[in-house]
Design a protein around this nucleic acid. Structure first.
Lengths: 356, 356
DNA sequence: ATGAAAGCGCTAACAC
DNA sequence: GTGTTAGCGCTTTCAT
């Protein structure tokens, strides 16, 4: 064993020595740069395979001042909606040559904050953030210090960034209207954290539809888990004049409401119609099949990743963009319909100025 | 703007200058090391906040030769089973001070291979791998070169590593036996890729139960998606003497089989009993509720991460361990039962030598 | 076409 | 206690 094959992984220095060339030449070959003789290229290549050399990207990043890594701070990976989103992000980042640092905030502001600090230390070039429900204006400094941030699913409070969301209000309004068209007059809304952006928007759409029909809203909030959603549904179903239809705010809530409906022995949609925001896996084998607003989870992630990378590579550096992606209203049976139809949500995913 | 606040993020050198101390002292304060005067500590701290200094972990890693990052190469993030697994891994890694590099192989060997190379370059200290269905003996060199690998969900072909799986065969056998106990004699098995480890193991359990009862197996393989699972179920249901029960190999297959059963107008469990491997979200609001083998997805991820970190920190360096975690048989109604019961699978998650 | 040398930001001997 | 200095592995002028 010669001196250049000692402890640890071989460095480019080892490769150079082994091939009998300078470090510069070795580096050129490693990075596929021109201006190296055929023969030297071969010698270096041979040394590389022989030694099992692999470039150290950390050292490289230190020198070129680019980590080529992007961080994803996600709310909850075990939620299929975010899972699909993350999968699309991962693909997009990889295809553009970036690595993905994964962080799960579990919707907790303090975990998120700690992560954001860590990611700065780790030299993430950009951050894809599904922000927790708190003020983020403390990040203004970091932003001006050069780190790019793109928000997903909800805008970041107190920070102007690129952002990609879905047409929550429009979709919720259309779905509620659909229930009204079926003749329902008492339609309940069961939502998660009251101040959560998506909840606020969806509630707005729901209320706007009801107002248009001169009906009174029936709202239950704070259903942050399947269990609490179930309890919320129970409470609403035990009213003196219970609703004949329920609009559920997300997939967790949907499961809880379905459980409560079963327990109460209600037949859907005869006794209780249901329309859900967010598709769920077994929606089409449920009896009756579930009518849902399907979110473009993958497109959401992909768009966000693309926008971030555009910023990182200087392809865009203007004012913060907000992209609103269309949902799909999948009409099945739980709303009272018989046939399955898919309606494209209004407005395409065009770049729009911030909404009114 | 003084000279130490010029372009880019401030370095420890800037901090030292700003505080009027040496770089070493600044470094000591940054890393919370002892032997620094109270007063200097304060001065350095002040400089840090004033400058907005953040340690560059890449540079640090280069020096201390540790990246403190772990890579997760996962099959499919949009599958809730892997999502839950990933969430647990993320938590475990964070709590131990490691960052997580996320890579999705999409079950494709070439993507996986490219990632493995990249991760080496990125100086990942260890790899958590849900391996694709190929021979991995090319990784032997990397392994001896010092990178630690732990397999999840299935062992790595051609590579002896720590590994954590569930009791596939035992669980499948018990579930099949349950169907036999209900009086079924024609029980079909619908599985994914024929050579996939989990498929092989589950099939083994299924066949062993049938053999014990003197019944003939009815097997359909290659159902790698919901659609193909549905077609497989259709084909099996159109046999001259169709099965009266189906054992589904994973959550994708389950959905496809359920679809096929609906289409065929079969009433479950009267016309067709179903037992599924892997829990699904709406299993308990389906009518009838679905009897499933629940996998400990989070525990799987957590155990794997813990084992990897033990290796990285020298807490264990013995022979490859294989951990087999118990599943839970959740008896609901699709099997023909009426009550809901949970049976702990046999054998705890004890460390065992490689299986026979 | 090739190489010598400087230095990215940091830590850790080692000297004072 | 504090500071000087030598690299970690790499890229990149700038000579030659």
């Amino acid at each position: 064993m010669s001196v250049d094959e000692r402890r640890g992984r071989p460095t480019i220095r080892d490769v150079a020595r082994h091939a009998g060339v300078s470090i510069t030449t070795a580096s050129r070959v490693v990075n596929g740069k021109p201006y190296v003789q055929r023969e030297l290229v071969d010698r270096v290549r041979a040394a590389i395979t022989e030694l099992g050399y692999r470039r150290n990207d950390l050292a490289r990043g230190l020198k070129v001042r680019r980590s080529r890594s992007i961080a994803l701070v996600i709310a909850d990976l075990s939620n299929p909606f975010y899972g699909a989103c993350a999968a699309a992000i991962e693909e997009t980042c990889r295809s553009r040559g970036y690595s993905l640092l994964l962080c799960s905030s579990d919707e907790k502001p303090d975990i998120e904050q700690a992560y954001l600090q860590l990611l700065l230390q780790r030299q993430a070039e950009g951050i894809l953030l599904i922000p927790t429900d708190r003020d983020h204006s403390d990040l203004v400094d970091e932003q001006t210090a050069g780190i790019e941030i793109v928000a997903i699913d909800r805008p970041i409070q107190g920070l102007a960034t690129d952002c990609v969301v879905v047409d929550n209000d429009v979709a919720a309004k259309a779905a509620t209207q659909h229930l009204l068209d079926h003749g329902h007059s008492r339609i309940a809304y069961i939502g998660a954290a009251p101040t959560l952006y998506t909840n606020v928007e969806r509630l707005r759409g729901y209320e706007s539809a009801l107002a248009g029909a001169g009906r009174a809203p029936i709202v239950r909030m704070g259903a942050a888990s399947v269990g609490s959603a179930r309890r919320a549904a129970q409470s609403v179903l035990q009213m003196k004049d219970p609703p004949t239809a329920i609009f559920t705010m997300n997939n967790l809530v949907t499961v809880g409401v379905l459980q409560a409906a079963h327990e109460a022995g209600l037949e859907v949609p005869r006794d209780l119609a249901i329309v859900a925001f967010d598709d769920v896996v077994l929606a089409d084998v449920l009896r009756p099949r579930l009518t849902v607003i399907r979110q473009p989870a993958r497109e959401l992630g992909e768009a966000a990743a693309r926008m971030l990378i555009e910023r990182l590579e200087g392809a865009y550096s203007g004012v913060p963009r907000i992209v609103r992606l269309p949902t799909t209203f999948v009409v099945r049976e739980s709303c009272g319909c018989h046939a399955e139809t898919q309606l494209e949500g209004p407005r395409g995913g065009s770049l729009q100025a911030a909404r009114s």
